[in-house]
Design a protein around this nucleic acid. Sequence first.
DNA 1: GATGAATGAGCTTTCATTCAT
DNA 2: TATGAATGAAAGCTCATTCAT
Lengths: 210, 210, 210, 210
Amino acid sequence: MDGAMPANRRETNRKFRQDAVLAAAQQVFGEQGLEGATMRAIAQAAGYTAGAVYSYYPTKETIYAEILAHSLAELRTGIAAAIAAEKTDEGRLRAAIRAVYAFYRSRPQDLDLGLYVFQGLRPRGLGPELDRQLNSRLIMALQKIAGTIARLGGLTPLAAHRETVAAICHLFGVLVLAGTGRLKILDSDPEILIDHYLDGLVARLKRLPG
Amino acid sequence: MDGAMPANRRETNRKFRQDAVLAAAQQVFGEQGLEGATMRAIAQAAGYTAGAVYSYYPTKETIYAEILAHSLAELRTGIAAAIAAEKTDEGRLRAAIRAVYAFYRSRPQDLDLGLYVFQGLRPRGLGPELDRQLNSRLIMALQKIAGTIARLGGLTPLAAHRETVAAICHLFGVLVLAGTGRLKILDSDPEILIDHYLDGLVARLKRLPG
Amino acid sequence: MDGAMPANRRETNRKFRQDAVLAAAQQVFGEQGLEGATMRAIAQAAGYTAGAVYSYYPTKETIYAEILAHSLAELRTGIAAAIAAEKTDEGRLRAAIRAVYAFYRSRPQDLDLGLYVFQGLRPRGLGPELDRQLNSRLIMALQKIAGTIARLGGLTPLAAHRETVAAICHLFGVLVLAGTGRLKILDSDPEILIDHYLDGLVARLKRLPG
Amino acid sequence: MDGAMPANRRETNRKFRQDAVLAAAQQVFGEQGLEGATMRAIAQAAGYTAGAVYSYYPTKETIYAEILAHSLAELRTGIAAAIAAEKTDEGRLRAAIRAVYAFYRSRPQDLDLGLYVFQGLRPRGLGPELDRQLNSRLIMALQKIAGTIARLGGLTPLAAHRETVAAICHLFGVLVLAGTGRLKILDSDPEILIDHYLDGLVARLKRLPG
DNA sequence: GATGAATGAGCTTTCATTCAT
DNA sequence: TATGAATGAAAGCTCATTCAT
């Protein structure tokens, strides 16, 4: 008889358990990869039965989406922290980019997931609503970088945005090629590549306004 | 009496159908994505029963490997052609990079496949032998670009290699983000990004030796 | 144009190739066991395509039956040879039984086949006609042993038959348990078991008439 | 609220259904033979889908192993009961051997299964662990017979073991030949053969110590 | 909300057999 | 006769998902 429990308390409980499931999913996902992340495995890691998971997430894809959303949120936090720890704009830019790199290097699954969900190995990854949500999170995560670039190069928001996107492309290229082992084959170190790009970017930005 | 069809002809026919299967695989792959590319689907697209496919390719992974090998060979041809059509080293560099871009833009599945096969959603997609083969094809495909960069910037082979890898990272980053729809969200045009990168690269290379 | 070839020559040729297929089947069978003996494997060992085998044997089971028939014929020859090489009836009995033992010990597949075909892992192993044929071959193979037993023990044909069957049962029991590894588990040597049985049998036979 | 069904009861239910699956497997196995005993067939006989069976037994081989284990356990019980019902050692020996005979005569599939599993038409039917378990069950099943033989013949444990194994060989030989229809062909009655062997064995044992 | 049972569709792969050439 | 292409049925197994309790 839980009639005594107020509605918001109940909701809190629910949210709590939902998060536990999510954490379990993340763990399984990190340990076993995309293929190993079956509903059973996730449920088990959460201390539930497969069926129970469905009271929290209606679909496997939903779980993936949620993980991805969390990932992006943490990425954003990571970027913010990296920037906050620096004094100069150049330091902030370098720190931010390196933070993104480090983030995905340490959670390669999150990269996989992003590609998987968006690209849609499955017909339609998620509903457009979820998609929009994830997109806005991505944009928010990048905004701090854009701001730094704008200040450093004295750029308009638009130009700074372009430069940010370019940097992100480079970053993801490095991450993807590193993650698939191609960089090793090509005898290249991802971190050196990142730093190399940053050197060029900073040089260009500093030169621009003068 | 099998004089009617010489061994020669036989083999040709076989090769022909084998290629048809491969084409079917590529088509299914493009239409349904990696997950949809089941042996049944491939066979059906080729007008066969599932079992029949196995007389052409002993394994699903083999088909993937073959598609990828073809893809890389064509990529190389494409790069060579693009370079051959230009007179100046700058033109060659720009043309080569744009050729890679155009190649994967027009066959997004090939990108997926490369990531899938190499990264190995499966334990290890293919034997190390095949892997090596594919690797060398990749390297060969990139060598022409490295040569052009070396000449343009007066770089040592090593430095040119580094610069080539960096360019490829950028390129793949753009391709991946474009392919997953992220660039659209970020309101960015992949071609502009490529050109932007090329401008910077060329400028840097020209400045370097002086 | 082989109109020049007389019918019986043609038949001889056919028989020849048919035997080649059979030999191949036997070889595959010995090397790969029952499960490995696919039509393709047999055909290949014979230098043919799978389809070609069907001009010689309409069914896989037919091949098995033929192998078994050959096996029984050879067994009979082996028994006869073993008996012929001995001077005394006791020697003949011992030699005959040991010959059967050695025969199946060296071709465990033939034992498997016998059990497989007769017992019918498949619904109906062979037609009743083939079955009868194989049966008579079995009986013929055992007749020499029965004769020796009859003489040694001064038994009526009927009594000798019974004793022969009993000996064969013992023999097959040893063979089956040895072949399935049970005897090793039970720490027993098949040859000792056989000799032990023979000792008892000979003693009994010698005692009987007196 | 799952107070309605205590864990206790749950487990019992589960065990019940698991046994039903096993019974179905045994039935299919008896009706269709080893080859016909597919997972689908077993499932259907149990009123399930193929997939459901896998929640009771993780593998087909496991089912086989379980059937065999049950079989050996029952065999042991049967032997014990037969022995317990007799007063004299001779009676016990005869009863035990006849019990084994009757057991397998009434469940010919169990014999097949034993041969199949141990001999391993498959590379190695079951892991060595299961194999050892089954072996020890087999040995335990035979120990009572060995004890009786030892007492009856005044034999050392070793000698009694040898005699037991010999008897088992005979028995299995009779069973196999009877099961494959060979005995009928040879116009012999398995029971008479068994009794004949027992007569000889008992005579020998009684004579020995004197 | 949670369980555990069950489904059903699907997967890759194997193989005896058929048949036009 | 022989080939080689192809079939089609089947096998063992996995998994997201549903649902009565």
